[in-house]
């Protein structure tokens, strides 16, 4: 073969160009924007038992038949603090509605820190600890905050990874209520 080095150089060049194009494409994308939608969407909500602030267990069965908003959170993550006001105002609007229930499950935090946060920030909706981090695992949570909307039939219809706004919550719940 005449001038094999030339051909090798050109082949390497083509491969490197291809790699460069790929890298250029990914530079603009956000590496953390993994599919924002949880894989749980469309499936049945996993059964769970969590521990309320008073120490009494709260089971998933006790919440059955209602549209459920489950929010995984903790006291130290910044986006959790960002969505706190949104959750408070949304809960104030909807807590009278018997067909809707909201539950905040703690993820990766100590009991002492949560208790003092609940007291200082006046958290009004039910909050529960997750012994053994089992519920977080069964839901397939990828971090916090992560919010799920579950229809009355127990099917998870929507999820959001990251802080929610009242508009997003309304949308998720409307979607959950639409499926009967």
């Amino acid at each position: 073969m005449k001038h094999p080095f030339r051909w090798v150089a050109l082949a390497v060049g083509a491969a490197v160009c291809a790699l460069a194009v790929v890298l250029a494409l990914t530079v603009s994308s956000d590496p953390h924007a993994e599919a924002n939608t949880s894989r749980l969407v469309g499936k049945q909500m996993p059964k769970f038992t969590v521990e309320g602030l008073d120490g009494k267990p709260i089971t998933s069965e006790s919440l059955a038949g209602r549209t459920l908003v489950v929010n995984f959170w903790n006291s130290w993550c910044i986006p959790c603090r960002q969505e706190h006001d949104a959750l408070t105002s949304w809960y104030a609007q909807h807590h009278d509605d018997p067909s809707i229930a909201m539950l905040g499950i703690v993820r990766e935090d100590t009991k002492a820190a949560i208790r003092s946060y609940v007291k200082d920030q006046n958290v009004t909706w039910p909050v529960a600890f997750d012994p053994g981090a089992k519920a977080a695992l069964d839901f397939g949570t990828r971090g916090q905050p992560e919010t799920y909307a579950i229809g009355p039939d127990g099917v998870v219809v929507a999820s959001k990874f990251g802080p929610v706004t009242p508009a997003v919550l309304d949308q998720m719940v409307a979607y959950a209520q639409g499926t009967n």
Partner: peptide
Amino acid sequence: PWLLTFLGVVVVICLALIAWRA
């Protein structure tokens, strides 16, 4: 993009030099 462009230019020059002197 800046670093990627610089890298691209350097790689192209290197390959061109080798191909030229092959």
